[in-house]
């Protein structure tokens, strides 16, 4: 049962990332919907650990790229070097050739370096020196950024944010979780011992299962009502694009799978809406409004049909 496998994954991840069940489930849903994930939070809350754990439990190859302001595109995609023995240039693949890439502090790099990664995310292939190299399949990018530091950073523009299926934040753990964290084992050791939860082919079947999750006419009615309100309703300067709508449905399907259902319910849409729509919507009036408040406003403005 795909639902059980998904649940197993969530449990395994939550054993290491304590007290962050919702964020973990969102991250998993994002991966199962084959989307890229942006984690936005202050340092030290476990962003990197989450990416590590996901790579481990899903059994994916993992590469970490630390973004810096002096980074060049070649540092990401790879570089052609002259090989004197063959008397020809040979392409040396960069760290992006991996199934799960952690792009740490992506907003520290220049737009040029950022766009090299973002293009890879969109095309799922690398073009350099007149050749095209396909990226591994599956290919996920988990990018992190620190929203509080503003000096010396290059915030991602809307068009680039749109390429991330979800944007989540972790937040501080609650006291009980923090206590367990303090009292418990070293996370790094636990991570090293962690075994993949998936057998060969199971991830592919999970992707297929997500696509098979039923979204009935009433659910689509509701989804469309949400999209329409985000575009026409008062309080929104920028609504959800058709791509945003598709992202919302895909994420809701993955969430329904994690919830153990074979169909999407409005709750699933509402659960993923902050993560999926938060970085795509812009408020009309109060610029200081958080994504959480903005999406809450959208959910509460649209009644369920029927």
């Amino acid at each position: 049962m795909p639902q059980q496998i998904a649940n197993r994954l969530a449990k395994a991840t939550c054993r290491i990332i304590l007290g962050k069940e919702h964020a973990v489930r969102l991250a998993l849903a994002c991966v199962l919907a084959r989307g890229h994930l942006l984690i936005e939070d202050i340092p030290g809350v476990g962003k990197t650990t989450l990416a590590h754990v996901l790579a481990r439990v899903l059994g994916l190859q993992f590469q970490r790229i630390q973004f810096t302001s002096d980074m060049l595109p070649a540092d990401i995609v790879g570089v052609s070097v002259f090989d004197p023995r063959e008397a020809a240039f040979r392409f040396h693949p960069g760290p992006v050739f991996s199934q799960l890439v952690l792009a740490d502090e992506i907003n520290r790099a220049t737009p040029k370096a950022q766009s090299a990664l973002l293009e890879a995310m969109e095309e799922r292939q690398i073009s350099a020196e007149g050749h095209t190299w396909p990226l591994p399949d599956p290919f996920f990018v988990i990018a992190t950024q620190n929203p509080t530091e503003q000096i010396g950073t290059f915030p991602l523009p809307e068009s680039q944010l749109d390429r991330f299926l979800m944007r989540i934040s972790m937040g501080y753990p609650d006291p009980a979780a923090e206590r367990a964290l303090l009292a418990g084992e070293d996370r790094r050791e636990m991570l090293a011992r962690l075994q993949p939860e998936l057998q060969a082919g199971e991830l592919t079947s999970l992707f297929a299962a997500v696509r098979q999750i039923h979204a009935g006419p009433r659910l689509l009615d509701y989804l469309q009502a949400l999209l329409t309100h985000s575009r026409q309703g008062a309080g929104f300067a920028l609504g959800l694009s058709p791509r945003g709508g598709l992202a919302l449905l895909a994420a809701a399907r993955a969430w329904a799978l994690l919830a153990g259902r074979d169909h999407v319910q409005p709750e699933d849409v509402q659960a993923v809406l902050p993560a999926v729509a938060g970085h795509r919507l812009r408020a009309a009036d109060d610029a200081a409004q958080t994504a959480e408040q903005l999406t809450r406003r959208l959910i509460e403005a649209v009644p369920l049909p029927g």
Binding site: P266, A301, P303
Partner: peptide, 9 residues
């Protein structure tokens, strides 16, 4: 029930 509230919630 709030108008927007799903049955499960």
């Amino acid at each position: 029930r709030a108008a927007w509230e799903g049955p499960q919630d």
